[in-house]
Every structure is written in C-alpha cells, then in structure tokens.
Design a binder for these strands. Sequence first.
DNA 1: CCGGAGGCAATTGCATGCACTTTTTGCCTT
DNA 2: AAGGCAAAAAGTGCATGCAATTGCCTCCGG
Lengths: 234, 234
Amino acid sequence: MSGKRSLVRSGTTVDQMVRAIGDRIVTGFLRPGEKLDEASLAARFDVSRTPVREALGQLSAMGLVERRPNRGAIVAVVTQEHLASMFESMAELEAICARFSAERMTAGERRALEIEHQASARLVQLGAEEDYEYFNTDFHTRLYRGAHSKHIYELTVMTRSRLAPFRRAQFMLSGRLAKSWQEHDVIVTAIMRGDGAAAGNAAKNHVSIVSEASAVFAAGDQPKVASTVPVTAG
Amino acid sequence: MSGKRSLVRSGTTVDQMVRAIGDRIVTGFLRPGEKLDEASLAARFDVSRTPVREALGQLSAMGLVERRPNRGAIVAVVTQEHLASMFESMAELEAICARFSAERMTAGERRALEIEHQASARLVQLGAEEDYEYFNTDFHTRLYRGAHSKHIYELTVMTRSRLAPFRRAQFMLSGRLAKSWQEHDVIVTAIMRGDGAAAGNAAKNHVSIVSEASAVFAAGDQPKVASTVPVTAG
DNA sequence: CCGGAGGCAATTGCATGCACTTTTTGCCTT
DNA sequence: AAGGCAAAAAGTGCATGCAATTGCCTCCGG
C-alpha cells in the first residue's frame, strides 16, 4: 500500500481492523444483515484485502459477523429466539457476576462501586442520558471485574458485545433512567452486605427488564444510531 | 499449491485448518505453550501460509492459541488462576444448563437422557473407560442442548473446548467412573422430576469434583495423550 | 571474562495476482 | 412477454513475493 496507517493505535493492522469493524458493528453504525464487502472495507481503511479478510474471520469467530463461503460476509443477524437466548444468558451471567462480587469484592472495590453509584444519582436527577450510559457501562464492568474470575469476565463481555447492537437507545424510554438507578441500588445494597444470592437475583432481574425494553427495538426496527458510545445493560 | 486437499471435509481451506489445528490442541496433540510455526503448519497440511494465518487468527479469537505480534503463535497457555476460573465458569454454566434442562426438556428429551444414562451403567460395570468417555461427552451435550438456549449452548461448548486439554485422562483415576455415574444419576433424577434448583446444584457439584481431579494434571504436568477422543466433564 | 552494539538469518505481516465460484445481465427461444 | 440459458462481471479464496520486524550470533571494548 502507501503511507502509514492514520490511526496510530496499537497492534497489527489486523487488530486495528478487528477493532474498527467490530466497533462499527457494536455501535450500530453497521447494521445487522449489512453486507461487508472486502474490497470496499479495504479501500475504506486503506489496506489490502488480506488484513480485512483476517479481521472478518476473527469477527466471525467472535460471532459478530457471519460468513458464507464464497458468498461474502454480513453483519451477524440473529433470530428473535437467538436474541432472547442471548439476553437470557446475559441475565444469568450478570447474576453470577453479582453473586461473586458480593462474595469476593475487596473493600476497595466495594467502596468504589458504592461511591460511583451514589454519584450517578445526580445524573438521574439531571436526566443526563448520555452521561448515565457511560456510567452504566462502567458500573456493570465493575461487577464483571468484581467477580474475580477472568473467564466469567470474558464470557460476559463477549455476550455484551453481541447484544450491544440491539440495546441502543434503551434509555430513551421515559423513566428508564430512574428505574435503572433503583435497580442498581438493590444490587449495590446486596453486594455491600455480602448477600450473594440477593445480588444475583437483583442483577438477573435488572437484565430481564432491559431485555424487555430492548425487545421493542428488536421487533422490526434495527438500531439506527451511529454514536461511538459503548453500551451495556441499563 | 498443488493437488486437491486430501481431507474432503466441508468448508473452505481455512475452516479445515481451524478444525485441524483446533482438534490437535483440544485433544492434547499440540501442547500448551508449543510454538505454532506458520511455515511448518503450511507444509504439514500442504497449503500456503495464508489460510494458516487466518486459521491462527480465528483460533486466537477463540482463545485456543495466543498470538504475539511479530513473534509467532503458541498454543494458549493458561495460568493456574485462569484454569481455576475456567473450571469455575464451567460449573456455573453446567448448573445453568441442568437447571434449564429440568425446566424445559421435552418429554422425548427426558426419556432419551434417562435411557442413555441407564444404558451407561453397563459401561461402568465393565470398566470401559474409553466408551464411557464417549457416553459422557454425549450426556453433557444432551444437557447443554436440553437448556434450549442457543447462546448458553455456545458459551458452554466453547468453555468445554478450552478446558479439554486439561481434562485428559481424568477417568484414569480409580473409582472415578462409578462416582461419575452416581453424580450423573443425581442430575438425571432431579431433571426427571423437574427440579431445576436441585439439578443445577448437582451439576455444579459434579464439575467441581472433576475440577479437583483435573487439578492434579494441571499442577506441573501438561497433558500427554494424543488420542482423538473428544473430552467432556466427567 | 562479561556486557553491549551491529549485522545476519529466520519469521512474520501485508500486498498483489490469479483461479474459481457466484451472480447478474442480455439474448434467444417458445 | 416470459422463461431459460449463456457469457460476462463481480467478488471470494488462496498462493506467492517482498518488506519489515525480531532474535541470535558475532565481534569489539571494557
């Protein structure tokens, strides 16, 4: 090719492509079912087809894209059942994370969780949806990490990525913000007193509600937004 | 290259490579930490380096191999903690599968599970370790499928693959066969009466015991066997 | 004898090219 | 006018080649 990659980001070209394409899928910029033309992507990112192919292969292994031999790749399109199955899995995984967090978080982790959670109450009052979404991602990531189990963390984050395209705009639903915070509150309280079972149930319940909220979008509509905001269970 | 691929198996060359290399890792033929030289693999399978590279990328995305930029790929080597974390996750996942199976299996699925399980008692009496291992894989796969949740199934099978290299030869431990069958029996009984909680607990317990048995091999020894037998929780 | 700089071999990373498969389009037949 | 067939166009799959990076070996200075 020609000059250096514009994005100075780390890793090989393939890694950059995986991130770049993956981000566009996760953020909804590329919509489920959309065709991923190797030549176009190569041109778009100013690389040859080889790294694009490798990236698509890896994304396929991650489940974000679907590859039909000799027929090109598309952004993974999931059936209604599979979507439900993923939300269900997410609920179970979050429950595990919350339960483990309640049992295993260090004092520091608990404190940090509590502080952030309390701070976020302000965002709810202000109705700062975008900011709350950032916080929300953070909150859940804390739970995943707090489980102190690398593999559970990987499974959970992976599932979250695959659900992300179907989660956009969930905070648009009126009142969702306050409800989300209250649900978080139940989880945090349970974790603070080390009650794993309660934390697990609360987390599972929390995701289930998000799932129902998201079902609205899954039915018919595909996500439309193109922001770069990461996404998590509300 | 030259002639057609010898293995007539389906899919593209890359798919075949993923399966071929993945199998060798999962069955312990390639051992954790072993270097995966692109040129050697290409020669070994009589393809060019391109599909080998793509396959390694996908296997890396699956977590079976580890890739250091510009420094080649090795069979993924996991720390003791990560291994423990994976077994722990496996226990949780199996618990979920068993619980869902108890709640969701059709009458036909329940019957098939029961019949196979009873039939396997004979294998225990005969001490047919290898045959029992086949059955065992089947038994667990039934549980995974019985959960009627595609995503849970995927997560579980994926985790099983990554644990496979560390599970070999667990049935060599004397008495493990009979114990395994008894544990299965508890699970089956709970499923037959639709008791999700009991089935989940029994399954979790079952994996935990396997985990402890496998810890023996993980500590110091790496797996040594090179058979082609698939592997599952005992 | 030990430590470091420089150069060489080996290996990875990516671009390009060609072969093969799929899809589309246009023409011919009915 | 509609259907089907054929040829061309588009796009994927893999091989090869070259540039770049890494690791190692050697040689020099201390």
